[in-house]
Amino acid sequence: MKEDLKRINGLYVTLLLTLYACAVIVQLEAASETKTCFQKKSPCFLKKQTCPNQCPSFSPPNGSSKACVVDCFNPICKATCRNRKPNCNGRGSACLDPRFIGGDGIVFYFHGKRDEHFALVSDTDLQVNARFIGLRPSGRSRDFTWIQSLGLIFGPNNKTFTLEAQKAAKWDHQVDHLRLSFQGKEILLPKGDSSIWTPPGSYIKIERTSDMNSVLVTLPDIAEIWVNVVPVTKEDDTIHKYGRPENDCFAHLEVQFRFLRLSPNVEGVLGRTYREDFQNPAKPGVAMPVVGGEDKYRTSSLLETSCNACVYSRGSRSSDKIEPLSLNQNTVDCTGGSSSGIGIFCRK
């Protein structure tokens, strides 16, 4: 009799735990945001993707380290989690002085020239230019450079957006060093994690990913850009012998791009690495593989779309007519050692 009661009690407890677990799962799924892919040429067309429980929101609340991401051109058609700041060891990143990781997963350096502008991406309906700052210590044959600002031209009406790291003599973590403008007018984005600004028409969305100095720029159906402002520290200066002056900390940008579509003819310092026919000249095994192209990608200003290799067509081409590239944009995990992925060296 006692054994029968124990067995019944055990079954009852198991049933309660199962019901409780099911209720929790239902609540979590209900709290998770979803997105349906409407790009006609996407392998996920009309498929709804639900954010994982680990990152249930596309715009998570203050303090969350990860956000939900949906890639409509990923054949898996499954939402994933990603960090809310640039991953400098991930594809599509541009950090340090400046160190790029292309769409092909290969690390390369493009030094450009200080106080000049270069096209990072030039496509039919998107142009991303960068202004480089830097210095040349005595005895060096080239400049040390960093990306100080980005200029975006996009969409059928050639909308413009700029983002820059403001010059500072000394770095102060309590100061917002970001300056933003849309269509030539400065954007006043309130400080605070998850603060959002978007203009009428929703051409672009700017979202803070920390209280200050970090934002996510979203161009709907075109690209997402994670940006972080950092200084050249005294430690950096000592290690790399930059010769940084006392009156300038060379505040600059760490950037990571995630493209939602690109045409087969995309160009630019970074854009060309997404082309299926691109042969990266970066030499494998070299500590600092420098890739040229200054003459091909130099522009006269931050919002100029003309360069010797630029293909921007003033947004006149319909996105429906663009045959998108197959974009494999998985980020790189450098936790397993110094070398992770093809051509990627995770420590400088």
Rank of each mutant, 00 (worst) to 15 (best):
R298M: 02
I25R: 08
P289A: 03
L260A: 05
V232M: 08
T299L: 01
F58G: 05
Q54L: 14
D4T: 07
I342Q: 06
R91M: 03
N74V: 01
I153F: 00
R347C: 07
L5N: 08
I76S: 15
D236T: 04
S318R: 08
Y12T: 13
N9D: 13
E235Q: 14
H117N: 08
D176A: 01
F108P: 03
H173T: 14
H240R: 06
S32A: 15
L260I: 12
G201A: 00
S338L: 13
S210A: 15
Q174S: 15
I147L: 14
L327T: 11
S338R: 11
T80M: 07
T145S: 02
A251D: 09
F259P: 10
T238E: 12
L16M: 14
H173G: 09
C249I: 04
L302G: 05
G293T: 14
Q183C: 12
S141M: 12
S318V: 01
S210P: 06
I25M: 06
N9R: 08
V266D: 13
L19Y: 07
L152T: 11
G155T: 07
R99F: 07
E33L: 01
Y312W: 00
N308W: 02
T50N: 00
S319E: 13
C334N: 02
T335R: 14
G292E: 08
R179F: 10
D221K: 15
P56E: 03
I153R: 06
T34R: 05
G139Y: 12
P289L: 04
S202D: 14
Q256S: 06
S59P: 00
P98L: 02
R314A: 08
M1Y: 02
A165D: 07
H177I: 04
F259S: 03
L262A: 07
P52D: 09
E3K: 11
G134M: 00
K205Y: 04
G268W: 07
K85T: 15
W146V: 01
S59C: 04
L46R: 15
G341V: 11
I225Y: 09
V121G: 05
A223H: 10
W197D: 04
F278R: 10
T273N: 04
N129M: 04
A309E: 14
K48F: 02
E254D: 14
T145M: 01
L120M: 14
M1P: 06
K191P: 09
S64R: 10
C37K: 01
I322A: 11
E29H: 06
P86Q: 05
G105Q: 00
C37Q: 01
W146Y: 04
K167G: 03
T18K: 12
L28I: 13
I342A: 07
V332T: 11
N74E: 14
G92Q: 02
R136P: 12
N308H: 09
Y297R: 00
S318F: 07
M1W: 06
V70M: 01
E323N: 09
V291D: 03
P98E: 12
Q54H: 08
V69N: 13
N87Y: 05
K48D: 03
G103W: 02
S338A: 11
Y242P: 10
S149V: 06
T218Y: 06
Q329P: 13
V311T: 15
T305V: 15
S340E: 03
E3F: 12
P61C: 09
T160V: 05
T36D: 09
F154R: 10
L120N: 10
T335K: 11
L96H: 06
